[in-house]
Deep mutational scan, measured.
Amino acid sequence: TGYYDVLGVKPDASDNELKKAYRKMALKFHPDKNPDGAEQFKQISQAYEVLSDEKKRQIYDQ
């Protein structure tokens, strides 16, 4: 599964769309709200870390 799929956004998503999707998913799977969501929360955080950084995103998109 790709990072875009993890966040539920298209590859041409804007920074604002990425942030909005990340916040929505992070709230849904945060371990405090969803004890079984810890692994998914890590994936969401990693996806956002890469896609929100312009240089990392360019490398990922290659």
Rank of each mutant, 00 (worst) to 15 (best):
I59H: 12
E54R: 15
D32T: 10
A47Q: 00
Y22G: 04
Q43M: 15
A13N: 02
D53Q: 07
D15P: 15
R57D: 01
Y22I: 03
I44F: 03
D53I: 03
S52G: 08
K55D: 06
L18C: 04
G37N: 15
P11R: 11
R23C: 15
K56C: 13
M25Y: 04
K24S: 12
Y3L: 11
A13G: 03
D32Y: 06
L51Q: 00
L18S: 00
D32V: 06
F29D: 02
A21E: 00
F29L: 02
A26R: 13
A38C: 10
K42F: 11
P11L: 06
H30V: 02
S14Y: 00
P11E: 04
T1F: 15
K24G: 06
A47D: 03
D36M: 09
L18Q: 01
L27R: 13
H30A: 11
R57H: 03
D36Y: 05
K33Q: 11
Q40M: 15
N16Y: 13
K33D: 08
N34Y: 07
D15Y: 15
N34L: 05
P11G: 06
P11N: 08
K33S: 13
Q58V: 11
N16T: 13
L51G: 01
S45F: 10
D12G: 12
N34H: 09
D15N: 14
P35F: 06
K42A: 12
D12C: 15
A38T: 06
K28D: 09
V50A: 04
S14W: 02
T1P: 11
L27V: 11
K24P: 00
Q40F: 14
D53L: 03
A47I: 07
V50Y: 09
A38N: 07
K19N: 07
Y3P: 05
N16Q: 14
D32M: 10
S52M: 14
K33Y: 14
E54K: 15
D53Y: 03
E49F: 10
K56A: 11
P35N: 04
E49A: 12
K20A: 15
G8S: 02
G8T: 01
S52T: 08
K20Y: 08
Q62V: 07
E49P: 03
K10H: 11
V50P: 01
D53P: 00
A47S: 05
E49H: 10
E54P: 15
F41R: 03
P35E: 04
I59E: 14
D53S: 07
G2D: 14
A13D: 02
K24N: 12
A21P: 00
Q40I: 15
P11K: 09
L7V: 00
H30N: 10
D61T: 05
Y22Q: 03
D15T: 14
K10M: 10
Q40L: 13
D53E: 04
K19Q: 13
Q58S: 11
A21I: 01
K42H: 11
D32W: 07
K20T: 13
Y22R: 00
P35R: 05
D36L: 11
